[in-house]
Nucleic acid binder design. Structure first.
Lengths: 247, 247
DNA sequence: AGCTTTCGTTACGAGACTTCACATTTGTGT
DNA sequence: ACACAAATGTGAAGTCTCGTAACGAAAGCT
């Protein structure tokens, strides 16, 4: 039975399992260090925290950058999963509700772990080539893909076809048709545009809040402000009828 | 004549001038290093680049964090100055135009120097207490103050009194009255809210773009998208009449 | 000139990264 | 059960950086 593993490595083969567990522990410890001690992740600290010596870590990651890459990949995966889960829990036909769910989930992800959020969406480190790999691929890609796939239902229904602002120039039409990240299946230009307005609005709020630039606003007021921000984005994406100017 | 300097240190006293020049050179070099080599600013590199030895820098900054603090302070000052200048060049009564000017200036600042932008608005470094000092004060403060002061004219005219979304809860009203950063003079709650929606929208776009998360969109399309983003924010702030749903 | 302050250098110790050789554990085949 | 091989961890070593300290040189002041 067990010998069937020799054929193709389907069965994780005990040794691989413990190795995988170690890798998980390394990543978890590294993330904790990242949260506590900031961006200057010390390889020696991770080892010490795990009751090991520093050189042992090189059996698992040849480079510090490689570890960071792994953390980024995990982060993007988890964020995208979280977004997808939040959207799956919402009504498929309720565009406004789905927008809210996505926005809330995005914000929560950033709030829950600013260090990881920064790792994913912060400044790409020059000389750290892996970032651009991730930004072009998993980063905005995974996020956009999660958003797009989760909103696909309403997109296909044409609910999102009329964003509030449609005065985009000629470059956008061709752009929307051609240069979308690979993960994002082709969607109508208007919906594509609306998605990006949404992303900008949510991302901006999430960044400001997670990086402590709104700390002078009370939690309650911040929540209310975010609610208003969501309504604004719902409006921008055409999920609500433009309300009459309440005067 | 010159002895009058002894009274109060009005005259910069040659020695102070050359010291100030050195400090400027240090900061300029540090920023260059920050741009080229990423966030891990090496003290030795700065010195070497300036034809000095590392310990000499400790005559000017007792700590690496102190140097970073100085860079942050400068960055905020320059950003706020840039915003103010852009807004001074716009028509005082043209709210939409002023919003556009502010947005464009904000975006340009981020684009022109992502490293500095990240320094100002990135993740606050734990164990680097100066950040919170700056974020509570100069950071969002300076930016908000520049925005607010520059928009004050139109605010006072009541042009900004009716943002698109006004469904904020009870916490906001009290918040807006009390907890504004010290730099921001008291403004109507609605205008305050509109300002923050604006900030979130522009900041989000600027972050995404500056940190390379929109690199899969062509420059032209990005410009057009940003134009649309501006229009959206103008709408959100009540600078345009809600256009009829163009169907 | 002579003194004081400032500036910069060399010398130094602590700590981190990374490589290397060596020991130890672990799983496997006989 | 024994032995072999691979994987894993350790200690030592070299290079790097930070930050301190002691020392020398230059500039300005009286």
């Amino acid at each position: 039975m067990r010998s069937s593993a020799a054929e193709s490595d389907r069965v994780p083969s005990r040794r691989e399992r413990v190795r995988a567990a170690t890798i998980e522990e390394i990543k978890a410890t590294a993330m904790r260090m990242l949260r506590e001690h900031g961006a200057d992740l010390r390889f020696a600290d991770i080892a010490r925290e795990m009751g090991m010596t520093a050189p042992a870590l090189y059996r698992y990651y040849t480079d510090r950058d490689e570890l960071l890459s792994a953390l980024m990949a995990d982060g993007f995966a988890e964020m995208s999963a979280q977004l997808t889960a939040a959207l799956d829990a919402a009504e498929p036909d309720d565009l406004a509700g789905r927008i809210r769910a996505a926005a809330v989930s995005y914000r929560e992800f950033a709030q829950a772990d600013p260090a990881r959020f920064s790792l994913l969406f912060g400044l790409p480190n020059p000389g750290f080539g892996s970032h651009s790999q991730h930004t072009s691929g998993p980063a905005a890609g995974a996020t956009m893909a999660a958003l797009e796939q989760s909103l696909r239902g309403v997109i296909d229904q044409g609910q999102i076809a009329h964003p509030l602002i449609r005065h985009v120039g000629p470059g956008w039409a061709t752009e929307a048709g051609t240069a979308q990240p690979a993960d994002v299946a082709r969607i109508p230009a208007d919906a594509y545009q609306a998605l990006l307005h949404f992303l900008a609005g949510v991302h901006g709020f999430a960044c400001l809040e997670a990086f402590d630039h709104l700390n002078w606003i009370s939690v309650q007021a911040r929540d209310e402000l975010f609610d208003a921000q969501i309504e604004l984005l719902q409006l921008a994406m055409g999920a609500r009828p433009p309300q009459p100017a309440a005067d």
